[in-house]
């Protein structure tokens, strides 16, 4: 009996690993443990075994049965695995590139703008917006720019034809002309005209100058301006803000200094220099970065604020210039060409 069992097991052990298809395995299984299977036949001989030998033979049969089942299970698992892998195809090569596009990238001007806005939000500024087509009043008159100021010259500022009609850009006086804003200060005027102080806004946006395009000039570029109006706002507060934002953006080693200057809409006015020699391509001890000052009382009067009650400061700078400084970009035109090799560098 034992020999017979061994023989059947040996046969199964030899045959089953070679079975590769599920129907073949089913057939093989039937040959061993089916109603007419070899192993079934051996089990049927149990009835002929003398009573005293039965426990020992039964044990032998059970052991053999267990081992046969293992062989069958292994064969089944192997076939199932082979079927699955046939379904999945060959294993992947993780070193192959993805055929999908991307990842997407934010434009460096967006990155710098959003970073500045994030820094400014933390100190109470909210981000304001306004039209790019403006009227002379919001761009110049309300900002204390005299009627004959060179900035208003057609040589320097883009105008729309005198009969142009803009459905959603308001004018103060029907006779004034539309133009492309030369600074985002017009947003300050519109914001102040809309509500009462205190006001703390940052207005980033596109502005236009009638300039030749070269490595450092562009007919349109982006500015970011801050305006704070409250009681008892001082020059010292203004300096503190600039120290804060540039240290936050460019690192603690960054210092700022004010040089007295002249702007029609602030008094006193300053140009702001940065000392940031730790940045790439910065080879001067001080770099001019923007202009600022205390809001001129004339501007407050234009928007109906009492200059005796309210004081404020304003600050503005070019975003391209800041991005060029931050990233070490040496030509402003790169920002407007959108070469993907440029765009992929900053995100």
């Amino acid at each position: 009996m034992q020999a017979q069992l061994q023989a059947v097991l040996a046969k199964a052990a030899a045959e089953l690993p070679a079975v590769h298809l599920r129907p073949d395995l089913e057939a093989a299984k039937a040959r061993y443990v089916g109603p007419n299977g070899e192993f079934t036949a051996l089990m049927k001989q149990m009835g002929a075994v003398p009573k005293e030998e039965r426990p020992a033979v039964g044990k032998l049969i059970n052991e053999a049965k267990g081992r046969l089942q293992v062989l069958l299970d292994e064969a089944l698992a192997r076939i199932a695995a082979a079927e699955l892998s046939a379904q999945l195809g060959p294993s992947i090569d993780p070193s192959l590139p993805s055929p999908d596009p991307g990842p997407g990238t934010r434009h460096p001007l967006t990155l710098v703008r959003e970073e500045m806005c994030r820094i400014l939000r933390k100190v109470g500024f909210s981000v304001a917006d306004g039209p790019e087509v403006e009227s002379e009043y919001y761009c110049f008159d309300a900002l204390n720019t005299p009627a004959d100021h060179p900035a208003r010259d057609e040589k320097d500022t883009f105008y729309l034809p005198s009969d142009a009609r803009f459905g959603n850009v308001s004018k103060k006086d029907p006779a004034e002309r539309y133009l492309l804003r030369t600074h985002t200060s017009s947003v300050q005027i519109r914001t102040m005209l809309r509500g009462e102080p205190p006001i703390r806004i940052v207005s980033p946006g596109r502005v236009y100058r009638r300039d030749t395009t070269d490595a450092t000039h562009s007919a349109n570029f982006h500015q970011l301006e801050c305006l704070y109006v409250d009681r008892n706002v001082t020059v010292r507060d203004l300096k503190a803000l600039l120290d804060h934002i540039f240290a936050a953006l460019l690192g603690k080693d960054t210092r700022t200094r004010f040089r007295p200057h002249y702007f029609g809409y602030t008094e006193p006015s300053f140009e702001v220099d940065l000392a940031a020699t730790h940045l790439p391509r910065v080879n001067k001890p001080w770099i001019e970065i923007g202009g600022c000052g205390m809001v001129d009382p004339t501007v407050f009067a234009a928007v109906g604020y009492d200059p005796e009650r309210w004081t404020g400061y304003a600050f503005g700078m070019g975003l391209e210039r800041l991005a060029m400084l931050l990233y070490g970009i040496d030509d402003i035109r790169y920002f407007y060409q959108n070469d993907a090799r440029f765009l992929r560098q900053f995100s």
């Binding site: 997407g104 934010r106 909210s126 407007y336 765009l343």
Partner: peptide
């Protein structure tokens, strides 16, 4: 609150960049 225009631009840029677009800046004129 930031101006709704600012929020829309920010969300639109997030959406587009999240869908594998390169954000561009072109001249208005």
């Amino acid at each position: 609150e930031d101006d709704p225009v600012v929020r829309f631009n920010r969300q639109a840029t997030d959406y587009l960049v999240g869908h594998d677009f390169h954000e561009c800046v072109n001249y208005t004129l």
